[in-house]
């Protein structure tokens, strides 16, 4: 598996040398960002067992904050990321503390986080002066990167390709680091049986909150870049359907695995482009895949590969 990932990464690094097509690069860029979202969501859902409906909210809030700081207040893009992540961190700590202190589990946790993210969406939708309401904000600036030869604006497919690939690598490495450490074992214990975990001396509240906060902040990091690449932010970023897209990617790829969501994100991002689909049919397809995967292949693509290998 480790070799497969290394080969995949190498291929990803070399791919722009072969594929010059802007549309192919754009798909890859969106897939990298979707994969980053899915991997960070899976930290909360797949590895800690908490069905958070707050992920899209973390993503969207951060996208809005960065965009507003840059377009309205003229901040530097890189500088604007810090306060955006700080706000996401604080929001996730507040929501997480409320939910986990009251020991909301499974369905109840999902519904309450969904309610919180709807409230945030309504605030953004109605705070016209700041967010431009349902029309959203168009982003014209491009972030620039300091290099020894001066500031280089990050524009064009190839630059964004490597930037978002780096983003995915960062998110993946952080999640991998967390999961392979003692924290990962605590999270596993919580997912499987939190009462047993507690009697083994694990502070269930603290580790649930930790996982929720890390996952949410990573989603915020993706949001910061997403607004800039796509060129606009809109209240839809915080909506339940976006949360569902993320869940569909994770379920399709494989809940119990770190690489699964990456595969799921690539399949679901590329699929609508491979077979021509209108935006509506794409949503319908995502929904159907979600339903299908839950009912028919609960372990996702990675699970299928695994069981094939075991059978052979």
């Amino acid at each position: 598996m480790r070799y497969a990932i290394a080969i995949g990464l190498l291929a990803a690094l070399l791919a722009p040398l072969i594929a010059h097509s802007d549309s192919v690069l754009a798909i890859a860029i969106y897939a990298f960002m979707a994969a980053s979202l899915a991997v960070s969501f899976n930290l909360i859902f797949g590895f800690t067992g908490q069905l958070s409906m707050f992920h899209a909210a973390s993503f969207g809030v951060s996208a809005y904050i960065v965009t507003i700081l840059v377009t309205t207040f003229g901040w530097n893009f890189w500088l604007a990321i810090a306060p955006a992540l700080a706000v996401v961190l604080i929001l996730s700590l507040i929501v997480g503390t409320i939910c986990f202190r009251f020991k909301l589990k499974e369905f109840y946790f999902a519904v309450v986080t969904m309610a919180f993210s709807e409230v945030l969406r309504l605030i953004i939708l109605n705070w016209n002066g700041m967010t431009n309401g349902s029309l959203g904000i168009t982003v014209v600036d491009r972030p620039s990167l300091w290099t020894p030869i001066g500031n280089v604006a990050i524009s064009g497919g190839v630059a964004w390709y490597y930037l978002t690939l780096a983003l995915l690598v960062v998110v993946y490495v952080v999640c991998h680091g967390v999961l392979s450490s003692w924290i990962g074992r605590c999270l596993a214990a919580i997912r499987l049986n939190d009462q047993l975990g507690e009697t083994l001396g694990i502070d269930v509240f603290k580790y649930k909150l930790l996982s929720f906060a890390i996952g949410s902040v990573l989603a915020g990091l993706v949001g910061a870049f997403y607004g800039f690449y796509s060129g606009f932010v809109e209240p839809h970023y915080l909506s339940i359907p976006l949360g569902l897209d993320i869940i569909a990617m994770v379920l399709l790829g494989g809940v119990g695995s770190l690489i699964g969501p990456v595969i799921g994100a690539f399949v679901l991002t590329a699929l609508p482009h491979v077979i021509e689909l209108s935006a509506e049919l794409r949503i319908a397809l995502y929904g159907s895949i979600l339903v299908f995967v839950i009912l028919v292949m609960p372990k996702g693509i990675v699970g299928l590969i695994g069981s094939k290998r075991n059978a052979a």
Partner: peptide
């Protein structure tokens, strides 16, 4: 049940 029914809404 939650995921399936929400998936159906979007469909």
């Amino acid at each position: 049940g939650l995921l399936v029914s929400i998936g159906m809404i979007s469909v």
